[in-house]
Design a binder for these strands. Structure first.
Lengths: 283, 283
DNA sequence: GTATCTTTGTGCACGCGTTCACAAAGGCAT
DNA sequence: ATGCCTTTGTGAACGCGTGCACAAAGATAC
């Protein structure tokens, strides 16, 4: 049932805000880079810039972990790396299984960012018997029949699903039944999991669609005229010349024999900028 | 400079909340599935379940687009598909370039979710001359020297970066200079872009780290007992037998010759659970 | 036409996240 | 020791997002 994150809502006690947790890996990466350059200390301002966030936010984030800075100086890089790693649980070794060794699964298996952060690919699993035994990223692919035993033998609690959408739910259920309690899902489907299981979703198509929305908005504003009340940045229209516009607008559906009210709104003119927002009827 | 989304903060006028925009693709996917099954109408309750969200939230989201439902009946599937598609800008054709054709780039090129949503892979670009001409997903890879002309000729405004981290910023700058105003970044780096350019980031490693955090928390709670009141959890090591525990805890750094204050906190015992939270000094 | 039933659309309250701004803390120079 | 300068840590205000709960709107039955 629960698909989102069922975490305790209150930030009481030692609970670290979800938003902060999501940024800790960012800080950790920036700190690791500094560490490799043997930089001993760093100020909140510098680190914030490197991580691409606001310095006040960074300081508040760190304040949830404890007082690890020195006023007038900054933060000790090594010390902070350790504290964040520990908070994120990266001082442990996390065996991970990847299910679905297609293009994406193979890319994930080869991804270097895993091993460098305490994650270890315990197994690659695929439903295609022809894949079994074939080495990918130096690891032999195993058949999905062995999923349960692999998870049990390796103490796996994190699973990655990179299967087609149709197989995702079923794979998910087998993973959970076998003991996995955290799932990273690349399949474009909503997974149903019991309480206590965390699911994070990465959806390439959705990210692109969000970009398209903003892209359209930028283009629309530019076309509609530089000033929309208190406009920002005129944003000259992009070079693009190859845009196709769909003209097959479905009419507002009429329920049974009722009169189709306010059909006029769907048109909204060739500039996609406005049109949707206004209610169908003037009043 | 601006790395995040510099959108107008106020949700005034026809502005659709960012959180809503991020959910529209989810609704669209659920609606498309219904459409393929020829379901004519759907209630907010049903659609919300299919999309994995709360029905009140869904209705509020739709209210930002307009009044597209019929009380007592629900939403017309086809009509809603069109309205959301239009709002997201998917009634246009968006040419996209993918830069960096390694494992991940190839996976993206093969990803079906692109074409089905109005996105068209205009070109695959790689810095490796040996890749040039090789077909990936039916498209010949082109050398990065041609990046600028490709973007200009095809009117590309959306770029996908799937290069190693080291090359990402440079590629980003070339993309922006050539006219790209939206970037989907898979490289584990913070990109600096001028105002007016949108960047979205997908980071596999970060997602896993967030899961690890929750996993550690779950293991800690389970071991400590179901209710923690508001205590600081002793946190016994998790069930898994294969966990490696780091014992090399860096000592709290002492600045120059100053006395290392509150050294006690860094110890906090080999149980990585707490120790951070409390301030170093009692008072 | 009237009554009833279903479902939308939204006003409102609450909590989380972000940001500002500043006092406190510590280093450093003298 | 004293004063100055830098930087942290955080109280407080604000805005966004979420969810409840209900009135309004429309369909349907009679």
């Amino acid at each position: 049932m629960a698909t989102g994150r069922p975490h305790r809502p209150t930030t009481r006690g030692r609970g670290i805000p979800e938003a902060t947790v999501a940024r800790l890996p960012l800080y950790l990466r920036a700190l690791t880079a500094l560490s490799e350059r043997s930089v001993p200390t760093v100020s909140s301002e510098e680190l914030a810039t490197a991580a691409g966030v606001n310095s006040a936010k960074l300081r508040k984030d760190f304040s949830y972990l404890g007082s690890y800075g020195t006023r007038g100086v900054g933060y000790d890089v090594e010390y902070l790396v350790y504290q964040i790693s520990r908070e994120l649980g990266l001082t442990q070794d996390w065996p991970v299984v990847i299910v679905g060794i297609g293009n994406l699964g193979a890319a994930l298996a080869n991804y270097g960012g895993f091993a460098s952060r305490g994650f270890r690919v315990a197994a690659l699993i695929d439903a295609d018997a022809a894949m079994a035994g074939r080495p990918v990223a130096g690891i032999a692919v195993q058949h999905i029949d062995e999923l349960e035993s692999i998870i049990a033998d390796n103490g796996v609690s994190i699973g990655v699903i990179a299967t087609p959408a149709g197989a995702a739910q079923q794979v998910c259920e087998r993973l959970v039944a076998a003991g996995v309690t955290s799932i990273l899902n690349f399949a474009p489907t909503v997974l149903s999991v019991p309480d206590g299981v965390d699911v994070r979703k990465v959806d390439l198509s959705i990210e692109l669609q969000i970009l398209a929305f903003h892209e359209q908005r930028k283009a629309g504003e530019a076309a509609a005229g530089p000033d929309i009340t208190d406009m920002v940045t005129p944003v000259v229209p992009p070079v693009a010349a190859t845009r196709r516009r769909a003209d097959d607008v479905p009419a507002r559906p009429a329920v049974d024999g009722a009169v189709p009210h306010g059909v006029g709104d769907a048109g909204s003119g060739p500039d996609g900028s406005d049109g949707g927002r206004s209610a169908a009827m003037p009043a």
